[in-house]
Design a binder for these strands. Structure first.
Length: 558
RNA sequence: UGGGGUGUCGCCAAGUUGGUAAGGCACAAGGUUUUGAUCCUUGCAUGCGCAGGUUCGAGUCCUGCCACCCCAGCCA
């Protein structure tokens, strides 16, 4: 695992910052910001942006502000503001200042009047539909609005009356006066203020006109003294507009916008709008469903902040389209939990084993290390009893020598315990194996039997000294590699096996398990309690990720 | 048919002023192992979208193609 204390891996943005710092630009300072719109939960694509903005600023001795881009009260709420703050803090980042674009509404308004006075903005009376018609197309230039040359005084008066609430939604807008024939559509007199008679989660009902992104973002950056403003590639052709506004207003601070490509993760969606759809349609159990790539979902699934930070470093930053394999994310959490998760045993598909030569009603306590390589993690005790559970897949009536588990008539070791031999199969009415009678060799605790080789080691749980538990396994929510770029209805691409629920048993030591702990269920994978569903008397475990399984690969080949 | 971007191993991604292709994941083969886990060792682009050119020498410079992504919200 990459060391968190190391510098962020080099990339084209860090090179730019290095040059800027070296040349003394901005007085050698690096100030970044993370600007989420509080209209949904953060996902792992945001984590990439967060790690980048916070990480690079830290590496260059700078700071990072958290700024909510709250210019559209229709879609935003404090619930999302709070969820976002929780997620960023959980990821392990500390912002310098908490700001809101709405903090600047007064200044933004004044600046807009300046623009009008300088004949760089005008109030347009065209309807939304007409504005669209006048805009032209990608290949045809647009034409000027008939209101474009409205007198400054008239625009000013209209704008003030807009603010005063004299007009209804959609009646008027304020537009920048740039160039309707620009090949860049964003420069064709973009709208910067619209009327919306709705309360805002931060400013209440103080305003009924709200500034738009292109106008707000660059000015907020400038007002905060941001030096490097990172965003995704889709804003690349907005950069001329970003610069235009700052230049026309002669802002003393002119941040540099730098664009990088957003993360695409295979077999999942990364669009907030589509994630919101899955949540609203109850296709998933909320924004924190363990199958979602949201920060909250990953957290509930059992991913650690460290593993997500590691992931963001591993995938790097560039401007090229990417489609990162799930294997990278899985490798990150395995690396973390391999070192930090205590080992325990749990059974998902119980098969009862009855040890004939072990006395009924008694238990032998066995010491089991909590980690194979870390003595400091200590030991816990396991109750070895006459009846135990093993996993159904660890028993076969017959098998060749490659099968390193329990086979009829042959021996296998119970992890941390004794070697047992399968002697008799009991079947239920359907003919399915319900129990296997075995004998154990009392001389094999901590040492191998003489003259014989046991096939292997399997995990187990006492059938009488254990805890019942629900165990949930996950697969990708979608069954195609890039659901985001598919034309098909996303609901038709859902993987019907994305969640599998088992009723099983886990060792008794897990009574003390807490929500923030992760465990390795030996030979099965890494698990944690589900923060929403698990109760003290009703344990529910989520599998974060399986262990690497080369046996499954070998079997699949045959 | 306009504008803005991107094309280096299956997936990411490094590649100082041109000097002879990092690393990670994945994969493969061995070794250790009371987790078929971990760990260790080894292998894995005569090749950098394609075609020309400049040069002693080009992923890096020039020219011309090709492919893919983004943009026509009073969303961000």
């Amino acid at each position: 695992m990459n060391n968190d204390l190391e510098k962020y891996p080099v990339n084209f943005i860090s090179h730019m910052m290095e040059q800027d710092v070296a040349s003394g630009k901005n007085g050698g300072a690096v100030v970044t910001r993370f600007p989420p719109e509080p209209n949904g939960f953060l996902h792992i694509g945001h984590a990439k942006a967060i790690c980048l903005s916070f990480g690079l600023a830290k590496d260059f001795g700078g700071k990072t502000n958290l700024r909510f881009d709250d210019t559209n009260p229709l879609k935003e709420s404090v619930e999302f503001v709070n969820a976002i703050k929780t997620d960023i803090a959980w990821l392990g980042f500390e912002w310098d200042e908490e700001r809101y674009a709405s903090d600047y509404f007064d200044q933004l308004y004044d600046l807009a009047e300046t623009l009008i006075k300088n004949e760089k903005a005008y109030v347009d009376s065209l309807s939304g539909e007409d504005i669209r018609k006048y805009r032209g197309t990608l290949t045809e230039v647009g034409k000027n609005s008939p209101y474009r040359d409205r007198a400054v005084e008239e625009s000013l008066s209209l704008f003030r009356r807009m603010r005063a609430g004299e007009f209804s939604d959609g009646e008027l807008v304020l537009r920048l006066k740039i160039d309707m024939s620009s090949p860049n559509i964003n420069m064709r007199d973009p709208t910067i203020y619209r009327i919306r008679h709705v309360a805002h989660h931060q400013t209440g009902d103080k305003w009924c006109i709200y500034p738009m992104y292109d106008y707000t973002h660059c000015l907020s950056d400038s007002l905060e003294g941001i030096t490097h403003s990172l965003c995704d590639l889709s804003f690349e052709d907005h950069r001329p507009l970003y610069d235009w506004v700052l230049d026309e207003l002669k802002m003393p601070s002119h941040p540099q916008q730098i664009e990088f490509s957003r993360l695409n993760l295979q077999y999942t969606l990364m669009s907030k709008r589509k994630l919101k759809e899955l949540v609203d349609l109850s296709v998933v159990d909320g924004w924190d469903d363990p199958r979602l790539p949201t920060i909250a979902g990953l957290r509930r699934r059992g991913y650690t902040p460290r593993s997500i930070r590691d992931f963001c470093r591993r995938i790097g930053v560039s401007k090229s389209d990417n489609n990162v394999e799930l294997a990278v994310l899985e490798s990150c959490i395995r690396d973390d939990l391999e070192i930090n998760a205590p080992r325990v045993m749990g059974i998902m598909n119980p098969l009862k084993i009855i040890i004939k030569n072990f006395p009924e009603g008694s238990a032998e306590m066995l010491d089991a290390p909590n980690h194979p390589k870390n003595e400091k993690m200590g030991y816990r005790q396991l109750a070895f009893t006459r009846e135990v559970y093993i996993d159904r897949y660890d028993f076969r009536e017959e098998a060749n020598r490659k099968y390193k588990r329990l086979v009829m008539g042959d021996e296998v070791r119970l992890r941390y315990g004794y070697v047992i031999r399968a002697e008799e199969i009991i079947r239920d009415q359907k003919g399915e194996i319900s129990e296997v009678y075995c004998t154990y060799d009392p001389s094999t605790l901590g040492k191998n039997p003489e003259g014989r080789k046991v096939r292997g080691v399997i995990h187990w749980v006492s059938a009488t000294e254990c805890l019942q538990a629900q165990i949930r396994l996950f697969e990708p929510l979608f069954n195609i590699e890039a659901p985001d770029s598919s034309e098909q209805d996303k609901l038709e691409l859902l993987n019907s096996d994305s969640i599998k629920i088992f009723e099983g048993f886990v060792e008794k030591s897990l009574v003390t398990a807490t929500m923030d702990q992760s465990f390795q269920f030996e030979r099965e994978g890494y698990f944690c309690l589900d923060s929403k569903l698990s109760k003290p008397k009703r344990l529910v475990f989520n599998r974060v990720v399986s262990l690497r399984d080369t046996w499954a690969k070998i079997e699949q080949k045959q």
